[in-house]
């Protein structure tokens, strides 16, 4: 088994002086963009749903519960296919036609982002719910006793602490999100995993290609974990030991 790492510097068939290394970086860029866009959807939507899962309002609780159960019991790949192949047919014709007119890469990126966003959102929903429920009941009572409305109590008392508590599990979800982004390769999006396959196909250098891609995923993980450690440090409440009070 002879390894040739210089293959990355060889020119790639796409021409224009691009090397295989450029291909790899292009794939990396798409993975990063896809992950960040999905994370925004997941965090915002998941947080709202998580709050709904803790509210006494049965309608809101029900909506959020249905959301979580549906998105957690269908495989990610199947969800992606639903967004990419099925949704364009089921939405109102105007929206469907607009989507079908999009250039292929944008369409794939959009479907992947929505898929990943809502899939991860279901998991974040449960994390947020766990975070809120881990706070002592007295905190909510103290907020209400001061005259806060329920919304104010969530905003000023419950959510600031809940989000601090769930920074570690949120970091795991971010890492999972980046890994899950690889499913987008199945519909043709040229993110990092897809690029790995391309590299193998074109260079016939399986070991080098896969090692490089693997190392890049590991690097992404480390960056995310490092960033979230920094967030945890910044968000730390002096004198408070994580675990939700007495």
């Amino acid at each position: 088994m002879d390894l040739n790492w210089h293959v990355f510097l060889e020119p790639a068939p796409s021409g224009g002086g691009a090397t295989y290394l450029d291909w790899t970086i292009a794939g990396l860029k798409i993975t990063v963009m896809l992950s960040m866009a999905s994370w925004v959807i997941a965090l915002l939507w998941g947080s709202v749903m998580g709050v709904f899962r803790t509210m006494p309002n049965r309608v809101l609780y029900g909506i959020a519960t249905v959301y979580v159960e549906v998105f957690r019991n269908i495989p990610l790949l199947v969800q992606l296919f639903i967004w990419y192949f099925v949704m364009p047919e089921l939405v109102p014709p105007a929206l469907g036609n607009w989507y079908k007119q999009l250039d292929p890469v944008t369409a794939m990126f959009l479907a992947s982002t929505l898929c990943l966003g809502f899939f991860t959102g279901a998991r974040i929903c449960e994390q947020v719910r766990a975070g809120i429920e881990s706070l002592s009941k007295g905190q909510k009572a103290a907020g209400l006793a001061l005259g806060f409305s329920l919304r104010q109590t969530y905003n000023y008392v419950l959510l600031p602490m809940a989000f601090r508590i769930i920074v570690p599990p949120l970091a795991s979800e971010m890492v999972n999100l980046v890994k899950n982004s690889a499913v987008a390769s199945t519909i043709g999006l040229l993110e990092l995993a897809a690029m790995g396959r391309q590299l193998v196909d074109y260079t016939a250098r399986a070991y080098e290609s896969f090692t490089a891609i693997t190392l890049l995923y590991i690097a992404l993980n480390l960056i995310i974990l490092g960033f979230m450690s920094w967030v945890e440090l910044k968000a730390r409440v002096p004198g408070f030991i994580s675990g939700g009070g007495r």
């Binding site: 890492v175 890994k179 899950n180 982004s181 690889a182 499913v183 390769s185 199945t186 995993a193 790995g196 396959r197 896969f210 891609i213 693997t214 995923y217 590991i218 993980n221």
Partner: peptide
């Protein structure tokens, strides 16, 4: 735990 399952499968 650091790599996507798809990568492992492709490997």
């Amino acid at each position: 735990r650091a790599v996507p399952l798809i990568m492992v499968l492709l490997w």
